[in-house]
């Protein structure tokens, strides 16, 4: 039963044009790194540029964009087009549905974000794996937190994608830039803290200690998942007109 649920979720998330578009965004990151490499930069230059690319593009734009689209689609699009009924009308515990959706979303988002960051890091620094691996791990952990948040969001509001985009652009982009105290609840800052801890002297120095980031990030994942399970247990299907 679980295997069928996993494969169905994978097909729903991958078998669409938007996956190609999102993969193309990751390709763009690799492409920029490649173009930069053509300029034959010095090692220090390369480290700085690749770090900025991985952090500013990879973690700050690619990661939230991919996770908000994939994360809100995992359950949200099924609620939207009514196919959720085919899952709810089966003897599946609701927590299992949420956990499977979360795991698959995480995996897909990691493939779409962490892999380009890893490759981009290797290309930009001509084989120095530290930046690539560091920010790829940060992206993978950030993807889990974002995925859990956006999955829960899609069960709270039917306009999850818009609200999620607003959170990313307004809260993480603007508010967290102006008011440093709010960074403690910014997923981007959590991911940056992880990246910096691994890379050492990060390209963008993180504002949070690693322990704080992991603790709060972990708590967010647990709470968001619990909320998602609760919401899916309570979800009601009305008729087309209701």
């Amino acid at each position: 039963m679980t295997a069928a649920l996993v494969s169905l979720t994978f097909r729903a998330l991958l078998n669409r044009r938007r996956t190609l578009l999102l993969a193309a965004l990751g390709g763009l990151l690799v492409l920029v790194a490649g173009i930069f490499r053509l300029g034959d930069p010095s090692t220090a230059e390369a480290t700085r540029f690749t770090g900025r690319l991985a952090a500013d593009f990879g973690l700050a734009v690619l990661l939230p964009l991919v996770t908000v689209i994939v994360g809100t689609a995992a359950v949200g699009s099924e609620l939207d087009d009514g196919t959720i009924v085919y899952l709810l009308a089966r003897p599946l515990p609701r927590w299992l549905i949420v956990l499977v959706k979360l795991a698959v979303t995480w995996l897909v988002a990691t493939l779409l974000v962490a892999v380009p960051i890893l490759i981009g890091g290797l290309v930009g620094t001509a084989g120095d794996s530290e930046i690539g691996i560091g920010y790829a791990v940060a992206a993978a952990l950030g993807a889990l937190e974002y995925a859990a948040v956006f999955l829960a969001l899609s069960l709270v509001t039917s306009r999850a994608l818009v609200v999620g985009l607003a959170y990313v652009v307004v809260w993480e982009g603007v508010v967290a830039g102006l008011f440093a105290g709010t960074r403690i609840v910014s997923v981007r800052q959590h991911a940056l803290a992880v990246g910096d801890a691994i890379v050492g002297e990060g390209a963008v120095s993180a504002e949070l200690a690693l322990s704080v980031a992991l603790l709060i990030g972990g708590a967010v994942v647990v709470l968001a998942t619990a909320l998602a399970i609760r919401r899916l247990t309570m979800v009601e299907l009305r008729g087309e007109t209701g």
């Binding site: 039963m1 295997a3 069928a4 649920l5 494969s7 169905l8 097909r11 729903a12 078998n15 669409r16 087009d81 009514g82 196919t83 009924v85 085919y86 899952l87 009308a89 089966r90 003897p91 599946l92 299907l237 008729g239 087309e240």
Partner: peptide, 28 residues
């Protein structure tokens, strides 16, 4: 319980056989 919804919802990426088989597997 077998339930047939009124709404014309379907997975656009599945054939009918895949859809029915997935339903069978989901029901164990």
């Amino acid at each position: 319980i077998g339930f047939v919804p009124e709404r014309e919802a379907f997975y656009p990426f599945l054939t009918a056989r895949q859809f029915v088989e997935a339903s069978a597997r989901l029901s164990g």
